[in-house]
């Protein structure tokens, strides 16, 4: 799988689910409506900046806090296809994978300083690399998915995964 898009960078660590989709919106279950509030706690202009297929580049422990699946749903429906971070909080990570909403991709911490906001990049899940097309096609490695995660991703979510 090869994906291309623009990077939206928020390098702060510990961006939590209250920031990604604040508590008052938990009662909303319409996916399109949730998308209009994505990242409202950190950038009220976020949804205006994102185009379909774009990527987030964020600090470590992204998605910590609550188990609300609203978080990956809101990001996915606002156009985000993959998130690059040194680490993810566990429930956010499995919600993103099992629900088939978007791809949480682990990177080395130093990549956070190399790739800038608005860079155009290519993510190659076959050879586990990122190419920064804005910066002379510089190549970085990404951490491959574990066996079960890549199988669930390939199946398109947990409900399509039959190897139990």
């Amino acid at each position: 799988m090869i994906l291309q898009g623009t990077v939206h960078k928020y390098s702060k660590a510990n961006i939590d689910t209250d920031v990604i989709i604040p508590g008052p919106y938990l009662k909303i279950h319409d996916h399109d409506e949730l998308a209009t509030h994505a990242m409202e706690g950190i950038d009220p202009e976020f949804t205006k900046k994102v185009s379909d297929g774009d990527f987030l580049l964020v600090g470590n422990n992204f998605g910590c806090g609550s188990s609300r699946e609203h978080a990956p749903i809101a990001l996915s429906k606002s156009g985000i296809r993959a998130i690059l971070s040194p680490s993810f909080a566990r429930i956010f990570y499995r919600n993103a994978i099992d629900g088939g909403y978007l791809l949480p991709i682990e990177i080395d911490e130093n990549i956070l300083d190399q790739i800038d906001d608005k860079d155009k990049i290519e993510i190659n899940l076959e050879n586990h690399t990122i190419k920064d097309m804005t910066k002379d096609n510089k190549i970085y490695d990404i951490k491959p998915f574990s066996k079960i995660i890549s199988e669930i991703v390939e199946a398109g979510g947990l409900f399509n995964y039959n190897k139990t």
Binding site: S67, E69, I91, R94, L158, F159
Partner: peptide, 9 residues
Amino acid sequence: GLGHTDIAY
């Protein structure tokens, strides 16, 4: 704790 898809599963 789990999210909605996992609980549905």
